[in-house]
Design a protein around this nucleic acid. Sequence first.
DNA 1: GCCGAGCCTACAATCGTTCGCAGTCCGGCC
DNA 2: GGCCGGACTGCGAACGATTGTAGGCTCGGC
Lengths: 351, 351
Amino acid sequence: MVTARDVARESGVSISTVSRALAEPDRVAAETRDRVLAAATRLGYRPNRAASGLRAGRTGALGLVVPDLENPYFASVTKGVQARARQTGHAVFVVDAGEDPELETELVLGLHAQTDGVVLCSPRAIEADLEVLGSAPAVLVNLRVDGVPSVTSSDIAGMLLAAEHLRALGHRRIAYVGGPERSWSDARRREGLAIAQARYPEIEVVAVGSFRPHVAGGRAAADLVVASGATAVLAYNDLVAVGLVDRLRARGVVVPHDLSVVGFDDTFVATLASPPLTTVRTDLARLGATAVDRLVAVLDARRRRDRGLAVSDGPEASEPVTELDVELVVRDSTTVAAPTPTTVNAPQEAS
Amino acid sequence: MVTARDVARESGVSISTVSRALAEPDRVAAETRDRVLAAATRLGYRPNRAASGLRAGRTGALGLVVPDLENPYFASVTKGVQARARQTGHAVFVVDAGEDPELETELVLGLHAQTDGVVLCSPRAIEADLEVLGSAPAVLVNLRVDGVPSVTSSDIAGMLLAAEHLRALGHRRIAYVGGPERSWSDARRREGLAIAQARYPEIEVVAVGSFRPHVAGGRAAADLVVASGATAVLAYNDLVAVGLVDRLRARGVVVPHDLSVVGFDDTFVATLASPPLTTVRTDLARLGATAVDRLVAVLDARRRRDRGLAVSDGPEASEPVTELDVELVVRDSTTVAAPTPTTVNAPQEAS
DNA sequence: GCCGAGCCTACAATCGTTCGCAGTCCGGCC
DNA sequence: GGCCGGACTGCGAACGATTGTAGGCTCGGC
């Protein structure tokens, strides 16, 4: 392995100068710097991260915990996180907690020991997480815990948009296929529905239960949706919506003619589905990138504070939670309500 | 941060004993060990990875380079890699190279400086990669380069299975929608088709070109497939197949009635599609896990060699490439060829 | 009762980098 | 011409863990 010592010998300077030439270019004479840099590239020198991390007290690595990498939602977030982290000079440890709370806690602890900070995408709001986080740098995605910065999408506004869209199409009885019971996002989405319900007395939202946020969950919910007599259904996310559509088709219910379906998140499966799903879009890569930005801001603030400098009032203090806006994407899975306003019988012909 | 020194003071032993109690439990007296371990857990001690990595010459981290995290194929592989790595005591840096060869090279170099080894999923066979790998530990996935261990799925056998399936259903003219031009997998899949063609003279395989391995690629290929007059089509992967089905439907071609479609990989989109896709299955998580196993074997061998011990003839020497077997999964996107053996006119009615 | 063997544990060097401190050199100014 | 200051570079001490080696203790055998 080629070390700073080799570069130093090659360019006729000391190790310290090599280090400075790379880290603080303007503190070394231009001529010397060029010589060092030339030698470094010639030898293919790469600073040993372990050594610099040890000495400088920072590893240059971030951690990312997600519940399921195969879920397109988290795949996109992960992509955004690692892309942004690369720009800020960090590498990202990615771990899949498999929706196992205990494993997740263990992983977060393990990551804190070998990273500068952690981005945590936890599907549910558990108090145990709070103490896990302790004072170690962390940013939450789609979760809110006092004292910990977080980044979320505007679930409430998103659900409101979706509900208004259905109302405008003439739907009056709308089913909601909920996500996991302890899910923070699900709670927020229900909140959005409650607001819609209050604002538009003419519509009626019926929640048909809590389901796993996967295709299987949507399939399982289909019968209940049909039984609810609704003319439109809002799904917790796109995967659930796809499962719904699939099972509905098998039952002879045609989407959107017999039943309008709205997804959430606008992952790529929304465009794959047939019909393509009307859904609520968030820029997931940006969600991940923003989480990294927040985390890096926290790290910088810490570093400044440790050096005794005054901590300028950055965004980490002024705004604990960053909320990304959403957008309704209308595709083919929603249409006007059937001619008869209260068409309670239409879906039942398939039961 | 709690260090080994703290644990040592707490349990009344020296730092070295703390280190040994954790790393080589049987080299320290049972009573002492328990005392140390108790203190360690009580204080929440986590060895500083940077420090131990620096001293021991290993970082405990692996690197994974994939071309696109949002592609379900690589999402599954990634999941397998990080799960297995966790079992072997490693953390995984995941980077998305975005199908950019130069970036990929840069990333691999960067990873080698901060990991013990790298798992490289590169879509195309480029010679430049070869020298990049140098002598640093690496394992390739779905790629073959002399001197570098690799793990692949049996593309050739898989394509053969798929072709035989279609032949058995009475199809005689079969189109192939190819993947990227420089793709190693694509070359292998074409190889499988060539074998099928040679073995079964009655069938005729027509390649309709090279497409991006995404839904868009499949959509773009649909017209050519129809024009080819084939009664069945093999797609480079499931995403392409989904794109095909989608565009075909828009053109009025009904799958599988008018045209049978076969995917590849059996990612979850295969089950999402309508109709669900007949496809060739590989256990992708196992693919990733196997890659980690191979990499860890290489690392162990190196470590032994560095200590002057004899290198036992492990699998890393005996078998340079590990090939995972595949399986044909028959779903609803394939059916018997239309009654008229050469039904060249059926698809054209839609053009 | 003395000596040797073995088992444990402490000491100390070391990994490669960063960074405070000090030293050197040169130019400018009085 | 001498002194001061600024710019640049080298020295050396950390960072926290691992690990070879040496020393101390205990116990058994003669």
